[in-house]
Write a protein that binds this DNA or RNA. Sequence first.
RNA 1: GGGGGCUUAACUCAGCGGUAGAGUGCUAUCCUCACACGAUAGAAGUCGUAGGUUCAAAUCCUACAGUCCCCACCA
Length: 905
Amino acid sequence: MAELEKTYNPVDVERKWTAVWRESRVFTPDARSSEPPFTIVLPPPNITGSLTVGHALGTTVQDLLCRWKRMKGHNVLWLAGMDHAGIATQKVVERALLDRGVTKDALGREKFLEECWTWKAKYHDRIVEQLGALGASLDWSRETFTLDPGVSRAVREVFVRLYRKDLIYRDRYIVNWCPACGTAISDEEVDFVETHGKLYYIAYPFAGGGGELVVGTTRPETMLGDVAVAMNPGDKRAEALRGKMLELPLTERAIPVIFDEAVDPTFGTGCLKVTPAHDATDFLIGLRHRLDPVVVIDRTGRMTAEAGRFAGLDRRAARAQVLAALEERGLLRKIDDYDHAIGHHDRCGTAIEPYISRQWFLRMRTLAAPGIEAAKHGAVTFTPDRWGNIYLSWMENIRDWCVSRQLWWGHRIPVWYCGDCDETIVAVEAPAVCPKCGGAKLAQDEDVLDTWFSSWLWTFSPMGWPETTEDLETFHPTSVLVTGGDIIFFWVARMIMASFEFMGEIPFSTVYITGIVRDAKGRKMSKSLGNSPDPIDIVGRSGADAFRFTLMMLSPPGQDIMFDESKVDVGKHFANKIWNAARFVLGQEADVAGAAAGFGAGGSRAASVDTPAGLHEAVFGDAADADAAFGWEDRWIVSRLAKRAAELEGHIDAYRFDEASRTLYDFFWHEYCDWYLELSKAAGRQGGLRGRGASITARAVLGASMILLHPMMPFITEEIWSMLAPGRGVLAGYRFPGVPARSLDGALEADVDFFKEIVAAIRNLRQSFNIPPGKPVGVVLNCEGGRGIPARLDRFREQIGLLAKVSDLTIADGAARPPGSVAAGLSSIEIYLPLAGVVDIEAEKKRLGKDLEKITRECEKVEGRLKDARFTEKAPAEVVEQEKNRYDEMSDRRRRIARILEDLG
RNA sequence: GGGGGCUUAACUCAGCGGUAGAGUGCUAUCCUCACACGAUAGAAGUCGUAGGUUCAAAUCCUACAGUCCCCACCA
């Protein structure tokens, strides 16, 4: 075997396995498999750019689940795909074109779309590379893009079906309009930003004189489009003002005073200027009072002809000029500072302009009903569960969804208008002639659909819907959805609605919401901020395994994580530790590799020991040579392995990946490496059957560890696996039968804990007295009064010697304390360590005095509790029992320390 | 205006009713024949504040403070 590098170098190893996995097709499931299905759909990344650390987190969680389930014997489909991200992509492509001095309008629709496809190809490849580098076990054979013909067909089908059910309608309505992007957007795409603004008080004189009403507004420029002034009908002034008209300043128009419940009489002056064309509330008031809107701001944010002499001005400039004009006329009564939230487009940050336009809408209320029931009854659950409440409150207050976008990049709305008879034709395929008049002058709706109108079909559209396919039958509903809390409304909720509507079932049973990855300053990592390192760079520097492990360790469910690349060192060091442990184990006698396949001198043990079950049989079995071959430490590590494997399974099932990573880390580093491998060195030196037994255990537990670690750290485990058992096939495709729970040995584990305590105490004494680590010492263990302790400790002799560098060990009931020795007291035993030189009695007294003080304090606390009748009567019996045992142990230890102290005089 | 998260060792975070934990950092000793991306030992915490429930509270309840986030048609 080639000499292994001293330090693990992930780059070559990872590249190799990415290629091997791809060729092995272990990530491409067969829809006809008899194994139980497990499905995850990858939240399709936007092709706007490359992935962030946030994506790496979600990807790792999904990959971990998929690999775990695959090894557990599931038929796993992790479906790959990407999203065309309509508005976001159109934006970035436009910007890129602008850098070349080209505008999209100059280019025209067709050419512009070609540019988008070029962009898509580039970033698609980059994202594939990133996902590969992270080790994602995605099925690329089923890869889908949200503009693929199949998805497009599904989108049109859905549109038509919803239209026929009268759930989709077209209407002129006030929508959120982005003047910069030139399109309508949905309510969900509006971010409200707290802004320091002003509240302007403007006087509107009564027509024909006789006073005025003062209105308060944050947007004085919209007054040009006012059609009324509204007051609450309960307002004291109401009766006197009924039927009154006001002169709208700066215009020739007179407007009525009206009364509407929507007006808060306590706000401002209690008078609200009503501008139906430029405010959503006012639009509704306008509808109720049959007032025609006056549009004074156009789709680009400029004042219209209706704005009179302000026409052509940008809305910001118009505000200044309107205010100046009002000031001049003495109608501007007051300006207050006023903080309020202003809606901005989440993609470009432009202030939203409420705007009346003809758009397509989807009625949501009926669609939401089954989705609400599903969450309430647990058919769909959220982890952490508080997200379920957020989902429900949104679903229960759902509003119609504006699905049309005035963009080019996206699914064209499947609606045609007849130029002859004005007929509207909604169809999956483009009609040749108008079905009503037979005319051929058909024009398709110019608009496209909201991106999410294709994404919401994501659990089934890539599997071939509306056809009934094997994939749909096998893999739908999917199992888990892993995504961020920020797209619950955009995506998760809508997928649930779409799946109920078109599949008649849930899309997934569990929604796992990851935390948000933030930078060191606490800002969310995003493409637009440019504050996320490229995952590929991190992988290049530290390795995907290190990165993945670190992400899992840092992310308790639902907690945001403050990511800093230096944190990846934890994973990097761990990978290095794993590598070196393997180096050590693999470096042991070469013939062990053969022995591992079938242990036993006379072939009495043909069972393979490189599976957890086989190892159990070998170590715990009753064959004649078991006792000679395996020591207590072998049985101990196998017992620990069984325990840790069970813990790991529990943590993964509970989506506690942080706990899972800790379990693996503690087991492998602190139990297997720190204790077991060190212990096995003694047996190794002994050689013979015993030496082989130890080597076999070391190898088999290493192998089992690779299995357990694989979902989290796929590359390094695959590499070590291949060295442990060449020709066995890839670990990624290995079916893991589990570690037998019968390997557990609680009594042995308790004894080993005692052993570890003794070793630690001796090491502590050595350090306290500056005994060089390499210098052997003699040690006496006095077990006076400890029932049967000497016999129990006897089997640990050799190992105490090895791990604490003890050359001469005496274990006895009532052993004498050697002169000139220092001592430590544990519960059940005293430890004497003779020193060659003179002991500083005073310093020693001080050290032990501190120990005694501490143990006494704790002892008294427990004693006090035990003496309290309220405790002994009310606390559960097992707690009282436990406290009693604790007290016994602590008081024994206290007695021993006190005695050692006394001896010092 | 509602709703939620967070506040534990210098830092980043676990623990969520019965002995305060980890990683990093720090101190000391060691290049012990797998690993200095290492080993061993150690120092380090009024568990945000104030009340309450309980035999027992970092853990449950109630306020409050700080902080971050979501939702909301008071212009």
